[in-house]
Design a protein around this nucleic acid. Structure first.
Lengths: 249, 249
DNA sequence: AAAATAGTGTCTTTAAGACACTATCCG
DNA sequence: CGGATAGTGTCTTAAAGACACTATTTT
């Protein structure tokens, strides 16, 4: 026994400086035509009183599970159909003043919640939680501003080559609603006619329900057909963001 | 003091189950026209004697730094110009039999090393290290087979929209050498003429040195012009992989 | 001489985007 | 009615890919 311990000594993880692992979640949704991110106001030091991404330390669970759990705890509600993917890990030695904490960041796309006025409930370690318009976000705790920026860029890129825009809509949606998602996330106006044709031309992006909306738009216009998400996992050809012909960075 | 400790108790990272953090590196290079990955043979349990990705536990350093350090230690040589990027984190609760270990995986592209016969030297915790042809890899320790698969897919995708194929070549290269990188990583033959024109048409991908090779190819053909990497960070338009028109997954 | 390769020319097909237009619905 | 919007038609340009061809080099 003691010989095995000695043999393993140089390789025992416990011989290394202590470290903690947390998950932080960049949860995005669209409300009132604006991109919102879920933030919590910290109730305890460090950074008490400041806004931060929801998250917490991982328990005896998978990383994905930890992300979903933290999100549910701090929103206080069951999240229905959401898209969740790992964003990256952040481990600068001084990013948490308490000790070495490595954070695995997740990106979540959520449709606007069923209850239109639903405010997230404060969960375990958050004093308050709210959906905040992305342009209004400032002074996040830790390195969360950087994590949010990385999440936004990932979201913008993902809309190009995956059908994940549908993760922001209801189960059934119009092409105009889908276009609104792209315009909101990309922050650019798109040409309605060309967008319409493009979406329908990509195999498996959307499929028709055969139904139409009951009324026209709030400012006029004909009723529009309803679609649901198709079975494509990747968009071919992709919907590229306009105006980046000479993008060198 | 004790009141502060009590206040912080629920939020103290040390109150959570112990966890260790490691980095694992998928280092790819091209040798003899085949894609190779750097592996180490484990000298100690668990998985003693099996091949694994190089890696180790993080110290008081940034994650990127840890990846570079482990790579240098286990190859035993100074790696010159390499490309390094984070691949993702792997944290299944039972992925390491010793204890909870969360691994941050990195992806490295390295040109063939200056010394053509250079065999990596065994470093700290590896009994042996070698560049192994990717198709010959089997039975990796831990969940490293999955990490390698994810790294390969990332590498294939990155060649499409970034100039990272140049990370596999020397500082100066011919279009044919660049094409060989694409063919090796993608595992597909490309049309020489169209590839040539395409590469030169993408702004900032490559720039001419004005020089040419001293001889033609080993099996004949004219001398070819030499290029170096341009300043583009992204390829517009991208070089898409052929034959995935209807890719639904 | 024969084979291989670098590099270019040209044509077809596909896709993106600009613009126009009709039909439908709201106020 | 006037304004806004859904959806379609058409034209131009960019880009991908197939194919052909020349010039240059090696064996």
């Amino acid at each position: 026994m003691s010989s095995e311990q000695e043999f393993l000594a140089g390789y025992d993880p416990r011989a290394f400086p202590p470290v903690a692992v947390s998950v932080d979640v960049v949860a995005l949704t669209i409300r009132d035509g604006e991109l919102h991110v879920l933030l919590v106001r910290r109730g305890v030091p460090p950074f008490a009183g400041q806004w931060a991404l929801p998250g917490g330390f991982v328990r005896a669970e998978d990383l994905d599970t930890a992300a979903v759990r933290e999100l549910a705890e701090e929103t206080g509600q069951q999240l229905g159909r959401i898209h969740l993917e790992q964003l990256g890990s952040y481990g600068a030695p001084d990013r948490d003043p308490r000790m070495r904490v490595i954070s695995v960041a997740y990106l979540v796309f959520a449709p606007e919640l069923a209850d239109p006025g639903a405010q997230p409930q404060a969960g375990s370690d958050a004093a308050e939680a709210a959906w905040v318009p992305v342009p209004a976000v400032r002074d996040l705790a830790f390195d969360h501003a950087r994590i949010l920026a990385d999440g936004l860029e990932r979201a913008r890129a993902k809309l190009e080559y995956t059908p994940l825009a549908t993760a922001f809509t209801g189960d059934e949606f119009t092409i105009a609603e889908l276009r609104a998602v792209y315009e909101t996330v990309w922050g650019e106006r798109l040409h309605a006619g060309n967008f319409h044709r493009k979406v329908l031309s990509v195999p498996g992006f959307v499929e028709s329900t055969g139904e139409s909306t009951q009324t026209g738009g709030p400012r006029g216009g004909p009723r529009s057909r309803l679609y649901r998400r198709g079975d494509a996992q990747l968009l071919h050809p992709a919907l590229l963001r306009p105006g980046r012909e000479d993008a060198v960075r």
